[in-house]
Design a protein around this nucleic acid. Sequence first.
DNA 1: GTTGAGCGTT
Length: 267
Amino acid sequence: MSHFGRSGPPDITDTYSLLVLNITFRTTADDLFPLFDKYGKVVDIFIPKDRRTGDSRGFAFVRYKYADEAQKAVDRLDGRVVDGREITVQFAKYGPNAERIQKGRIIESFPKSRSRSPRRRHRDDHYKDADYRSRSRSYDRSEHDRYRGKDRDSRRRSRSRSDSPIHSKGRGRRRYDDDRRSSSRSRSASPARRSPSPRKSPSPRRASPPRGESPDRRSRSGRSRSPRNVSPRGESPVRQSRGGQSPSPQSVSPRGRPAADSRSPSS
DNA sequence: GTTGAGCGTT
């Protein structure tokens, strides 16, 4: 009840998690809620977003209270065109916290009894966690084995090519080793200085001095969607960082123009 | 402004 918009998972026990893929990047939980709620009782909807940009990743998680309803939703909403894009609804295979999921049902498997086996510090348990996580994110594995895929791999290959061994162009799923890489670079001040004129320091990347930055530039004005809850009841299982989670009073300008205009537009 | 394989939050 009061968990929505407060903290992590409110109560994910005996609930069925549905994974919705192929959704547009602008589709929000509010849009999926009425869609999934029509087929059953939706307990909660969660749409993972990027940590850097904060944009939707393109998939959402819908939690149902009953399996029959979830299955129905999967059968009915699976392949449905939402926002002009065909979405893919299926049972979640992995868990948010390495929880045991059976047929999409989340089973509570928390080690309540601490005095059960305190001896076990680290063992295969880690393998389990890393197992579902290293499904393909880790490219440091046998890649040649993956190439044996068929159509499914072909999709990923497409992306792989885009990513290429080089940097990720767009919002690649690369890790947060950006800072780490910088450190590496620091080690070698100039690994291959091609310019015989080290005097020139053309830093187009850093050519932007700390001036009046506007991080709130990414206004969601793309879609005239009211950021308020769709449930006037006050109880909306739809949790999204668009309401109370991100209380940024900076982009509240009614005109879309920040009132903090320290600069003088004139001269 | 863009993108499109996939599996999650304090």
